[in-house]
Structure formats: C-alpha cells, structure tokens
Design a binder for these strands. Structure first.
Length: 554
RNA sequence: GCGCCUGUAGCUCAGUUGGAUAGAGCAACGGACUUCUAAUCCGUAGGUCGGGCGUUCGAGUCGCCCCAGGCGCGCCA
C-alpha cells in the first residue's frame, strides 16, 4: 500500500514538472509514512513541504497541486485525500481496499508478507563464529538470534541468503586449549603440572580431559609434549565444536556453511591474499614485519599481516576469508560481531575495499553485551574464571522461545538486560508469552467454530462486515506487515518484528475482550473468523521469522 | 588523550530521508469473569527527550561543546 501511494505521488510530481510548474522532480525522495495520529488518516507524506523548501514556494500551494493531480488520475482506493497542517497530504484508504487486503492475506497464506524487495540479490551473513575453545555463552546467543532472524527477514523480502559460521580453529588460543586440556589430563593421572597461566578454567576442560583419559588411558605420557598437546587440542576442538552445534540446534539454528580457518591455511589461501595485495603494492616491510596499507582505505593506520617472527596475524586470515567471500560473488556481505570488536570494523572494511569490494557491499553489525538478571538482581559473569553463563543454561532454564524473543527485543547495538525470571513468567508481563497466548486464543476460537460447523472461508464470507471499527483496526495493522519486513531488511534491524508482534497481539486481546467472534449473527461470525484467522496467520509468520513456536493450546 | 556505542516516564525500551499535541510494555493506583482461554481487558497517573549553544518555517532526530555509563585504541585472539 505504502509503495503504491509512493508511485502515485511520483507520477503526480513528474506530471507537475512536465507542465513546468516545478523545476526538478528528481531532487526529493518521496516517502509515505504512517501519521502520528489516527485522525490524520491512514498514510501521510511531506513531499509538498520538501518541494516547497527546494522551490521556495508555499507548501500548501504545492500540496494542492499534487492533490488535484492525484484526483484527476481517478484512483479509487482513497476515501479522502486532504491537505493539513503546514502542508502534509493525508490519505484515507477506502474500506473496500482494506477488505481486499484481508482477502489477500487469506489467499496468500504463508506467503503473505513476502516481497520481491531484494530482487534476488545474494547476501552472505556470517554470525556466532565463536572460537571452539569453550561452549557458547549468552552473548553468542544474542548474536545467533539476531543473525538467524535477519537471515529469515532477508529471505522473506526476496534476497538469496547464505548463512555461515567461521571457525577460528587455528592459532594461539587453540594451543592454549590443548595445553589446558593436557594439564587436566596429567592431573587425572596423578601427575602434577602447573596449569597454564592463560589456560581455560571451565569444568568442561576437565570433562574433555576425562574423555581423553578413557580413550587413550595413559598413552599420552609416552608422547612428546608437543604431540600430546596437539592431540588434546584437536580432540578438544572437535568435542567443543560438536557441543556448539548441538546448542545451536537446540536454539533452532542451522548454518548453510561451516568455514574452517585451518582450511584457509592448508589451501594456501592466506598467502594468496597477501600476494594479491602485494601485486597491487598494498603491503610493505617495516620493522621486520609485513604491513597492509589499510590507511589508504579509510583505516586509522596500517596493520600488520605478518609478524616479525614470521607468523601471520589473525587479521591476515580475515583478509583471506573475506577475499574468499568476495570471490563467491555476493552482492552484500554481513558480519555480525560482538561490540568489543568495533575497533576491527574499519580495518576489515579497508581490506574488503582493497580487494575490490564496494563500499556498500560490506556491513558489520555489532552486538552489544547482554547482562543477566534474576528478578531484578544481577547475575555476575566472569569469563576469566570460567564462570560464564552458557547459552545452554539459558535454554535449559527459559526455553528456546523466550530466549530468542528476549535477544531480539532490543536494537542490537544497545545493552540488553535479560531477566531470567521474567522470561519464565506465564503472564502478560512476559511479552513472548503474551504473543503466544494471543495465538492460542485464536486457535481456541477456531476450534470452537469448527465444532459448530463454521470454518474461515474467504469466498464464503461477506467481509464487508469487518470493514469498520475494531475489526478494521486489526486489518490495518495486518496490512502493515509486508512493509514492516521490508523496513527491517533495509535497516538490517530485526528487533522491529518483536515490537510489531506485541502490538498485533495487544490489539487482538483488546478486540477479543470487547467483541465476540462467534455470535448469533452468522454473517458477522463468518467474517470475523476470517479476520482472526488472518491475525493468526501473521502471528505465525512473524514468530516463525524470529524462530519462535506458535502453540495452539496453552 | 583519540575513536565508537548508549543516555527519552519510577523500570526496560520504541520513535524509519528533520514534520503535526513525544509513544509502548512493565511497575503503581482504581475497576471488569453467568463469557469464544480473566495466562486477558478497561481506566488513572506519569516527561526540562543527559545539559548548553547553533542550523531552519519546524530538532528526540542534524552540527559543535560539555556531562555520565560502556567498549575499543597490540607485531593479542
């Protein structure tokens, strides 16, 4: 609807320009939005004011010319088009149009809300990408929920999406993992060895050591330390990665691709990336290290890719990894990182640009910290001591649905306070419960109707019965669903879906308390069954985009 | 010191290229079950949009300067 009005406005503005009333029609973006007050109508635009300030003419005059042009085009979807305030043009859409929307929803079923906005462009989205040195914690959970939901939104709006998890399975932290596990292994065999200073402290390290002891008994004592550490490292990495996959599975997340950093090394891709940069004179030697001229591409300073000791930096792998992504020909690359990596964004963007990616093809979304509370009291976490709260613990305590909803109820770059008690509550205080309850209520109504021999039937019902009052309010919110998804896709902000569903559920609960769906009025009942079925459909659709179940009975 | 993010009702937060009298949920207070699920709903109250200056017809939104909190500024990952 919104885009339809935008097209009409564009035609009108172009026509005025053709009649020399206006000079340059292309200079303003036409934007239609929802007015701040219901009294102002269903849609509004400020184009007249924008043109007026560009042309130096009175806004209301421009507005009236636009309105007359639209009236002349004999479009019958409006019940009124008015000029208001300083020069807004307000549109009120006719009831017949809204009824058409309702039919559209019911006929399109699960496809309602989907659009071709993305035009099939290929988007690659990488998220979680936690090192296989320990289980996923709460922060990874937020990144996972945001990434997966964004992927779903982009799919629904016509993008071709691929999701990917990058495994940092090489480097110092992996050796530290190996040494930590080996130390615990020796401990199990009664040998005392100093635990590495920077070692991983969690109990899961001990569990892994125990598994190694069960399988290899004391064999490792006969290995060289390097061999033993390497075995522990690889064993632990495999076990932990399996655990991560299990956790993600419980969280409802499947990746299209798991990309190993180790493979990049083995295939010589990192050297290739450096060679590529070198061939463009974008690296140089200094102080015995090899530097990438990232400052030429907007970074604050140049960055080292090969250290003086000959080893490669983490950044070098990332350059190679992103070169690989670019080679795969995506139109857009989205990386989702923890907010503590924000210092990394400009150098990564520089690398992408240096490798031929466009300014707009690379996006880094930063996920702010999650702090946990239990009924208002903070739950403290310390990764260093291994006392972090894992994603698994959250899932075990509050369940997948609540966890996913809570992770998505804030803009991703604001801090999130996750209250575990609230997430478990079965009352209206808990938004995810409130939304699911609305869905279950509708299912209950549909069951009852079905027992009475009534089913929602678009063609059999006279939908004019629901084209006014509270019924119409529901249709209007349902009608906004497709453009909501487009707006989420454009801004890459999935959190709006959670707000939308809360609004829709609230509107339904109010409707329910005020109006009977099944009543003595058979015609009205049949029409309202269609209406609530449409609400149910959109609730299911929105929840499924967020990866949340829609129970039929609660 | 430099950079990024955040600052909106008691709490947690929305607010889409600058637009009409700044919104929601929770908490608080007062009400509604002979009912398709009261696990819900209705009503009341709640604000110097961190502060200041500026840009303009118009600023929560843009610019500059302060204040507060978080994070980042390695040949660490």
């Amino acid at each position: 609807m919104k885009s339809r009005i935008e097209k009409l406005l564009k035609l009108a503005v172009n026509e005025l320009a053709g009649r020399d009333v206006l000079s340059d029609p292309g200079m303003v973006d036409i934007l239609v939005e929802k007015p701040s007050k219901k009294e102002f109508g269903d849609f509004t635009t400020n184009v007249a004011m924008l043109i007026a300030s560009a042309e130096g003419k009175p806004p209301r005059d421009i507005a009236s010319m636009i309105v007359n042009t639209i009236r002349d085009s004999h479009v019958d979807i409006f019940s009124s088009v008015e000029i208001a305030g300083p020069g807004f043009i307000n549109f009120r859409v006719s009831p017949a149009y809204w009824v058409g929307v309702l039919k559209d929803i019911l006929n399109n079923k699960d496809d309602y809300g989907k659009s071709a906005y993305g035009k099939g462009k290929r988007v690659q989205i990488e998220f979680v990408s936690a090192n296989p040195t320990g289980p996923l914690h709460v922060g990874h959970g937020r990144g996972a929920a945001v990434g997966d939901t964004l992927a779903n939104i982009l799919k629904a709006t016509g993008f071709h999406v691929e999701t990917e998890y990058y495994i940092n399975d090489v480097g110092n932290q992996m050796n530290t993992l190996g040494r930590s596990v080996f130390a615990r292994y020796l401990e199990l065999l009664g040998r005392k060895l100093d635990f590495p200073e920077d070692g991983y402290q969690g109990d899961y390290i001990k569990d892994i050591a125990e598994e190694i002891r069960k399988r290899y008994h004391d064999d490792l004592l006969h290995y060289s330390t390097d061999e033993a550490v390497a075995l522990c490292r690889d064993f632990a990495s495999d076990v932990i990665l399996e655990g991560i996959k299990e956790d993600l599975d419980l969280f409802g997340i499947k990746f299209d691709r798991w990309f190993s950093e180790k493979v990049l090394h083995e295939d010589g891709k990192i050297q290739q990336a450096i060679d590529t940069l070198a061939s463009r004179d974008l690296v140089y030697n200094s102080d015995g290290a090899l530097w990438f001229r990232s400052s030429r591409f907007g970074d604050e300073k140049d960055r080292v890719v090969r250290k003086r000791d000959g080893t490669l930096t983490y950044f070098a792998s990332d350059i190679a990894y992103h070169m690989d992504k670019l080679a795969r020909g995506y139109d857009t690359i989205i990386d989702i990182w923890g907010a503590d990596h924000h210092g990394y964004v400009s150098r990564m963007r520089a690398a992408v640009k240096a490798l031929g990616g466009s300014e707009r093809s690379f996006h880094a979304l930063l996920i702010q910290l999650v702090s946990l509370e239990r009924a208002g009291r903070p739950v403290y976490m310390s990764t260093r001591k291994g006392e972090f709260v894992t994603l698994r613990e959250i899932l075990d305590e509050v369940g997948k649905d609540a966890a996913r909803y809570f992770f998505l109820m804030r803009k991703c770059d604001s801090h999130l306070v996750f209250d575990l008690e609230l997430a478990k509550k079965k009352t209206e205080e808990n938004p995810v419960f409130y939304i699911q309850y609305a869905h279950a209520r509708i299912c209950s109504i549909l069951r009852k109707a079905s027992e009475m021999g009534m089913v929602p039937d678009v063609d059999g019902a006279d939908l004019d019965y629901v084209s006014k009052g509270d019924d119409l309010e529901l249709i209007k919110v349902l009608a906004g669903y497709p453009s909501l998804l487009v707006s989420c896709a454009r801004s890459m902000e999935p959190h709006h879906v959670s707000f939308y569903l809360l609004e829709l559920a609230g509107l339904f609960h109010r409707f329910y308390n005020k109006n009977k769906v099944i009543s003595d009025n058979k015609e009205l009942s049949l029409a309202r069954l269609c209406l609530v079925d449409a609400v149910r459909q959109v609730l299911v659709s929105g929840l499924s985009i967020m990866g949340i179940d829609a129970p039929e009975v609660m």
